[in-house]
């Protein structure tokens, strides 16, 4: 078999074209989804159902992970801080790491693995078994009835879960730092309060997790909605949701962090 000398250019062109096609598809999908968000917000019972499956079911993993991350931060932080004789700053270090970075980011990664993958698989299977088509033929828009509530639930769940993660982490660090290591309880909290700013640290952290919620929510419903209607198709769409969501979260985190904390140290 002889291959044309320019075949790699052709392959590159094809790759770019398919990516652009998918981007266009995604743009139209997002536009259509935002068009029905208003209607979907009126159906509270549907959103509550999805909040249950995405949010409530993620509670245990998020709280337990938060607790352990906080405990590890306390042990590691103490090890470093004692060299400089400033162990009472442990609370500050733990709280800032959690509230600014680890809370939003780790929660979003856990959420992508725990909840979003399930959403993709569920929507993909509904499509493969004609459930979405049947709904459409019953004059019920699947975008408003199935897709939008799942997206909205992700946007609501993620900030709440991130808050719980950070709170659990700080309590974990408090257990280790104050009860096991013996740092002064008052110093632990007062140092933290003196250095953690509600607007700069906590509100910005929450804003991050709202953005992550939008990104992870969109990726999961998009991958599910356009999953090929086969077992293989749904499986690879589920994998893609986790991979794409994780990368999107980390990339967005970098961009948001640079935007938020630039200019603060002027």
């Amino acid at each position: 078999m002889s291959r044309a000398p320019l075949s790699w250019i052709e392959a590159l062109g094809a790759a770019v074209t398919t990516r652009l096609d998918r981007l266009g598809l995604a743009a139209r999908f997002v536009a259509a989804l935002f068009g029905v968000l208003g209607i979907a917000l009126l159906r509270a019972s549907l959103i509550i159902r999805e909040l249950y499956f995405s949010g409530v079911r993620s509670l245990s993993i998020v709280i337990v992970s938060g607790l352990f991350v906080g405990m590890v931060l306390a042990v590691q932080g103490y090890e470093v801080l004692q060299r400089y004789g400033s162990t009472e700053s442990l609370g500050v270090i733990v709280a800032l790491s959690l509230v600014r970075e680890l809370g939003p980011v780790v929660t979003a990664l856990l959420f992508a693995g725990r909840a979003s993958s399930a959403v993709t698989a569920e929507i993909g299977l509904m499509r493969a078994t004609d459930q979405l088509a049947a709904m459409d033929m019953m004059a019920v828009d699947p975008l408003a009835r199935v897709i939008a509530p799942r997206f909205i639930a992700a946007v609501i769940s993620l900030p709440l879960l991130a808050g719980l993660f950070s709170a659990a982490g700080i309590i974990g660090a408090w257990i280790i730092g104050v009860h096991l290591i013996g740092i002064d309880d008052g110093a632990f909290w007062s140092q933290m309060q003196a250095s953690v700013d509600v607007r700069i640290d906590i509100v910005n952290g929450m804003f991050k997790s709202v953005v992550f919620g939008v990104a992870v929510g969109l990726i999961s419903v998009f991958e599910g909605f356009f999953a090929p209607p086969t077992a293989e198709g749904v499986a690879s769409a589920t994998t893609r949701t986790v991979v794409t969501s994780s990368l999107a979260v980390l990339l967005l985190d970098f961009v948001l962090t640079v935007m938020m904390f630039r200019g603060l140290n002027g």
Binding site: L125, T129, Q131, M137, A139
Partner: peptide, 19 residues
């Protein structure tokens, strides 16, 4: 179209019940 579809019923190949 949705108005029209209220007057059309469709039975899908494997039923397509909401699982």
């Amino acid at each position: 179209l949705y108005q029209l579809r209220r007057r059309i019923g469709m039975l899908f190949q494997f039923g397509a019940l909401f699982t």
